[in-house]
Design a binder for these strands. Sequence first.
RNA 1: GCCGGAGUGGCGAAAUUGGUAUACGCACUAGACUCAAAAUCUAGCGGGCUUAACGCCCAUGUCGGUUCGAGUCCGACCUCCGGCACCA
Length: 915
Amino acid sequence: MDEKYFAKKVEQKWQRKWADANAFHAEAGDERQKFYQLEMLPYPSGALHMGHVRNYSAGDALAWYKRLRGFNVLHPFGWDSFGQPAEDAAIKRGVNPHEWTEENIVIMRGQLERMGFSYDWSRQMAAHRPEYYKFDQWFFLKMYEMGLAYKRLTQVNWCSHDQATLSNEQASGGLCWRCGNPVTKKDLEQWFLRTTNYVDQLLDDMAEIEAGWPQNVLKRQQDWIGRSTGAYVDFEILAHGESLFSGPIVDGITSKSDHGKNRVRIFTTRIDTIYGANSIVLAAEHPVIQANIDNFAEEVAQKIAFIRTENTKPKDHEIEIEKDGIDTGLKAINPFSGESLPVWVGNYVMMEYGTGAVMSVPAHDERDWEFAKKFDLPIRQVISEPHLVHEHHSMHAFALEDAFTEYGVLVHSDYWNGKTSDQAKKEMAEYAEKHGFGEAATTYRLRDWGISRQRFWGAPIPIVYCDKCGTVPVNFDDLPVELPETADFSGAGESPLARVPEFVNTTCPKCDGPARRETDTMDTFVDSSWYYYRYVDPDNEILPFNPNEVAYWTPVDQYIGGDDHAVMHLIYARFWTKVMRDMELVPFNEPFKRLLTQGLVVGETFFDDSTGKRVYFPADQVTVTRDEKGRITSARVSEPGAVATGSAKSLKHAIERMSKSKGNGVDPDEMVEIYGADATRLFVMFAAPIENELVWNEAGIEGAVRFLQRVWRLVYKWSSKSEPPAVAGGLTSSTTQVQPPTTVGGSDRRLRQKTHQTIKRVGDAFETLQFNTPVAALMELSNEIADIEPDGPNDAEVVAVREALTALTLMLTPFAPHTAEELYSVLTANENGMLANAARFPEYNEELAKADEIEIPVQINGKLRHRLMASPDATNEELEQMALSDEKVREYTDGKEIVKIIVVPKRLVNIVLKA
RNA sequence: GCCGGAGUGGCGAAAUUGGUAUACGCACUAGACUCAAAAUCUAGCGGGCUUAACGCCCAUGUCGGUUCGAGUCCGACCUCCGGCACCA
């Protein structure tokens, strides 16, 4: 190689060497400790973006680090290749989704290889290939056998733009998660997986992974699962002779015990407030309402219908929906007080949660308060702050200005008066159960996972419908149920597979008679729920994987990806693992021991304020003028015809997520071409903490190039000055200890100190998943090396520099592997690089890291006044004496009374004087 | 509205978890090299004051507190960013 750094040349050389040596292939059963490093698999869109680069750079850094630490590292890659974009491409451009997807995979794999990520490509999986989705179907059939997969008619979230059903997660906020269009409701037969069977485990097993997962992800999962404990209470429903309701009440009994009475079951977390209930409020869809809809007065029925349709409108997160409702004329009897309460329909009660019925206690619930205020319903306070209990009894006062939602002491609650909320919640639920009108209960926000999609590009659900036998699962032996080559995508609302007769028409696995296949495909989150198990045994044709391979490699030691998957993917994957555990396929509860969520890569964008149009991107197309404070005052676009000049006021400055559609993306290929893969990766790791948002700044990447060039020059400068070290495997303890002690305070001594301090810092940083600070530490070390001039150095200096450079090179590997490999081969005069030599992370020597002299700040009354040089072994007494006898310090202390002296060992001395 | 998180130079950020605030990098300024430019190297780079002394004062969103000592802990407030959103 050259003494000048040509990134491209170096990178291509080592990429070839790695590939030829199959360098990153890992096999189970090694006696080394295993480490499974996983990054979230991408959708093969056809173009790698900087978000991917950030994700995989971090993963690759850890994979390299663990290899250097002697682990047997599994670092696989695959493709989440089912999903809508392939279908969209088929519709828009008439391409075949299979071909389109395979082409994209080839393109993106090339991009990844040019980045030099150390993946074991022999384990690559792709969700759209029959050899993979065969086992989606296999799992589905297993779950069907276990009663975990079932079908029911349901109102689904429907996106009319994408012509697809959406899970609740995907329809969050009433808008389609993909296209952002409003979601409507539609009745369809849908397949579900019983995630609710595992809801408590999903919550409780968080204790196992708490230490390794970001708090906010666990928090979001908790919120998503939404467990709340309370009680069911059954209210008897009566027509009560009101003119608004005619005829007998039919159906709609929602409580378990009926005694021949019509009852409606409500859920509450605050049974202690039940004496404050002024009404019962039902969802418009509630069975009691719908079963009796013809018996309501005209205007009531109309209002109910209105509320029902209004509620299907998309929820706008910015605008709070005004409370609305209608008194149905029905009455409900409060089982505790015997009081007769009106039954309302309210737009704020959702059928999907709890029982679709609530008791309204305006004094102690904000929504009920609003509702009562709007319709002028009575408000009765039944919980008091403990110190006000007396007043409540004497004055019967409800001077509440707002709902009092805190716990307190019960008042105006008969027998229960004086009990605390906590006591009452427990005892009242028990009382209700004893008397047959309720029980303690827990409800969840999480519902079963609807996996049916009216889509072509997904795994077919392996079910057959036979007129004779009904719903029949496909035999395991007949898997996979393969997707046809293509289909007619033009239809609306129906699965495209329904229009492929060769696919639909089949024979019944049971009776061999004519039958039809299920034409829905599975949600793509099924694919990503277990792909990380497939990597351990990707070619298995009989089972999803060999249990021995799984036993060796899993669970995943470190998972890295975006926190946009905090709830969907990461809950489904946890669910899947628990099901697999119950199938005795894995012996543990949790798939991912540690999770790291990396922040977005965002672009800096400017908009012309007058036109609202994007002015330019990327930054190098524009000339920016800044004021002395660094604020942007004007910008000029170098593109002809798109000139925009003016003050900062005329330009809107925005930071936004990089994306193709916004046109503000940075092409990784371009970065590799201009700066090299190593510099790109190094910069992405260095520029910001991994969990922070990263604002792309092209100038910064040039800094990374400069750093690599500096290291490069240093290695060439010094490698000609001495022989390679005796030990080929890299920097081991034997090479470091063999050196004779040198002069205290000498430059070689200081460099060795810095080297070993850096080894410690960098190692610690990797263990705590920090990537920006170790790069800074390596830069410091290189700066220190650069300070030593090779002209006429003594032997000790050459040794110290060589040690420093070897350590630097090894520690640089996780960030810039190509450059590091090349420099390592120069330093060791061995063309075969690190992997061939089984190079190891440099060994930390505490003795060498220790400074000969340390600086001890001396404070007077907590203010820094002076610095002393002292031995790191100096005792507290010695430090104190040194400080007190120091001339400079005495200027401050002379004539003053010393109150006390604080000495922090190896840290500082603080002398406290009397004021 | 509820729940989290964060506010440190012109910018991205460090700070051994209560002990020298601003490491490292970007940008910028000056100088060296050069016919010149680029690259590279050297020096400087929070603000202010002064008799210029490796001296003082002020600075980690604001105000207060604890402490010998606070970016770090406590209380109140302000701002920004995320998540959830009628969840009973």
